[in-house]
Computed example of a mutant assay.
Amino acid sequence: MARRKQIYEGKAKILFEGPEPGTLIQYFKDDATAFNNQKRAVLEGKGVLNNRISEFIMLGLERIGVPTHFIRRLNMREQLIRHVEIIPLEVVVRNVAAGSIAKRLGLEEGSALPRSVIEFYYKNDALGDPMVAEEHITAFNWASPQEIDDMMALALRINDFLAGLFAGVGIRLVDFKVEFGRQYEGDMVRLVVADEISPDSCRLWDMESGDIMDKDRFRKDLGGVTEAYREVARRLGVLRDVEGQGARGPVLVTDNEK
C-alpha cells in the first residue's frame, strides 16, 4: 500500500486511492477507540475480523436491494469500495435501551423500546458527535428532506435485515450505527451505505447469556474483545472452527468453503 496515495485516515480505517477512477481501497486497522478517542488500544486481529464481517453484511444488503459502496474484498484487511461523498451524519437505529439513550431518558438498560427509534448525530470529533434534529440537518444543508426520508427508510430496512440475521445465530441486535454517502452517476445521485457494519458499529448481545459481543467490551474494560468479534464471525459462518490445533488468530473461510 506504500505506493498508493493515502486519502484519509480515521480511527479504525485508512482510505487509499483505488486502482480505477471512482474507487478507493479501505484498509481496516487493529486500532480500537472509545469516548471520542480518549481511550485507545491496538487489538491484534480486530481489523481482519471487521473486514470479513462487514463484507458479509454488505453483500447481504446488496442481495436485498440496499445499495452499498462495497465492490469486493481484496485481501485480509482491504476492500475495494466506490468513492462516495459522505453525508456528515451518523444514523443510529435503536431497538433496546442501552448506552446514551438509557442515560438520557432514564430507561432500564436492556428493556425493549416501544418501537425502533432512529437518531441522527453530526459527525464531528471535535464536538463529540452531538445528536441533532432534522431541523438542524436541513438548516445547515447536511442533507435534504428527501435524503433524510431515504436514510430513514434504508436504516429501517437494514435494521430488519440485521435483526433477523443475528437472531438466526442467537444474537440480539440492540442498536447499530450506519453512514451514508452520495454516489454520482452522471446527472443522477443515489444514497448508498458507506463505512462499515461490524461489532465496532453495532451493539450485540448473546440471546441466552446476555454476554456483550461488541465494542462495549472495550469501552467497559471487560476484556476478550477480539474473542467476542471472532465468535460473531464464527456464528455468521465467516470463520470455521479449528479443533485441537492450538491455532492462533482467526482462520478464514475461503470463497470455496462458504
Rank of each mutant, 00 (worst) to 15 (best):
L105S: 12
L105D: 13
L105H: 10
L105A: 09
L105V: 05
G106R: 08
G106H: 08
G106F: 02
G106N: 07
L107W: 03
E108T: 15
E108W: 01
E108K: 13
E109T: 12
E109V: 15
S111D: 13
A112P: 15
L113G: 09
P114G: 04
P114L: 00
R115L: 03
R115Y: 08
S116Q: 13
S116R: 13
S116E: 12
V117T: 15
I118Q: 05
I118A: 06
I118H: 07
E119F: 05
E119P: 03
Y121S: 14
Y122E: 14
Y122V: 12
K123F: 00
K123T: 07
G128M: 02
G128C: 04
P130Q: 05
M131E: 12
M131Q: 15
V132P: 06
V132Y: 00
V132T: 03
A133T: 13
E134K: 11
E135H: 13
T138Q: 10
T138V: 15
F140I: 04
F140N: 14
W142S: 11
W142F: 12
W142I: 13
S144F: 03
Q146P: 02
Q146A: 15
I148E: 11
I148V: 15
M151N: 01
M152F: 10
A153L: 10
A153Q: 14
L156F: 08
L156E: 12
R157I: 05
N159W: 02
D160R: 11
D160T: 14
D160E: 14
F161P: 06
L162T: 05
A163E: 11
L165A: 01
F166A: 03
A167E: 15
G168Y: 07
G168C: 01
G170L: 10
I171G: 01
R172I: 07
R172G: 01
R172C: 12
L173H: 03
V174W: 05
D175N: 01
D175I: 13
F176A: 12
F176L: 11
F176N: 04
K177W: 07
K177E: 08
V178L: 03
F180K: 08
F180D: 04
G181Y: 05
G181D: 04
G181Q: 02
R182E: 04
R182F: 00
Y184D: 13
G186S: 04
G186V: 09
D187E: 14
D187K: 10
M188G: 09
V189E: 15
R190S: 14
V192D: 09
A194R: 08
A194T: 14
E196S: 07
E196I: 10
I197V: 15
I197G: 03
I197L: 15
S198R: 00
P199W: 00
P199H: 06
D200P: 08
S201F: 02
R203E: 04
R203K: 03
R203P: 00
L204T: 07
L204P: 02
L204D: 00
L204H: 01
D206H: 06
D206Y: 00
D206M: 05
E208T: 11
G210S: 04
G210R: 02
I212N: 09
D214Y: 06
D214S: 10
D214P: 04
D214T: 08
K215I: 06
K215E: 00
K215A: 10
D216A: 13
D216H: 09
D221W: 11
L222N: 10
G223A: 04
G223H: 02
G224F: 12
G224L: 12
G224E: 03
V225L: 15
V225K: 01
E227C: 06
A228I: 03
Y229P: 08
Y229E: 05
R230S: 14
A233I: 01
A233C: 00
